[in-house]
Design a protein around this nucleic acid. Sequence first.
DNA 1: CTTTGTGCAAATTCTTTGCACCAAA
DNA 2: TTTGGTGCAAAGAATTTGCACAAAG
Lengths: 129, 129
Amino acid sequence: MTSAEILQQHGIRPSLTRVMIYDYLREHRTHPTADEIYTALSPNAPTLSKTTVYNTMKLLSAEGVIKTITIEEQQARFDACIDTHGHFLCKDCGKVFDFDTELPSMKIPEGFSPTVTEIYCIGRCKSCN
Amino acid sequence: MTSAEILQQHGIRPSLTRVMIYDYLREHRTHPTADEIYTALSPNAPTLSKTTVYNTMKLLSAEGVIKTITIEEQQARFDACIDTHGHFLCKDCGKVFDFDTELPSMKIPEGFSPTVTEIYCIGRCKSCN
DNA sequence: CTTTGTGCAAATTCTTTGCACCAAA
DNA sequence: TTTGGTGCAAAGAATTTGCACAAAG
């Protein structure tokens, strides 16, 4: 399915800019920051602004099209893959890796309704070990 | 066990300031921010600086005495309870709740060594539902 | 005296806001 | 012609850094 179609399904108007940004995120599973997305797309979209990247990430995240990863304190990262999986942050090289995991059996108290569940680990990756 | 003893066990010199901060965190299971800790302790410790709170949180977190919760994008929260449990952020009232959970069976790739595992949910709490 | 802890002020960095202009329905 | 999207510059907020002084071994 195309990025435009996915956006539309979520009630988001698929502007050129939004499609370009979402496309980038779907094709680069590196959990980029807003700045990395901006820097990567700038050459082909000279008028693109960081504000628009932030606007778009916030919109897509709110509509559940992407996930915002807050594993690092300093900056948010983004992931177009919204299937259940975990994130591993290497505290040496700073890279974020995906890993397979089940959802744990969580005892969420009565009356609490979660919409997002995240699992993450921090440690050292294979290359840094 | 006293806070001073716990700090010592982790190789951290239990200065008055560190013990005071760690004590506060042990007694207030509200997942406070650095600013909240600073504001709460300031009246009794007029010379305390926010820098020291940040220094202390970073040190205690690095030594595994406390956990840094990065469920919110804007600011870090801290938790003196390092037993396995999940965190639930209510996107309406902003409070962070604890919930019981098992560790999921995670397929961390060969060669990756995690030191911290976090499970969190975002949604709406009982009061806001 | 030598290392470690604390604290002020300034700097840095990520993110948001206000506002104006442009584009689309 | 009204709403929604984009972008610049400025503001805001959390955290870090540089440096100096104080305290502890």
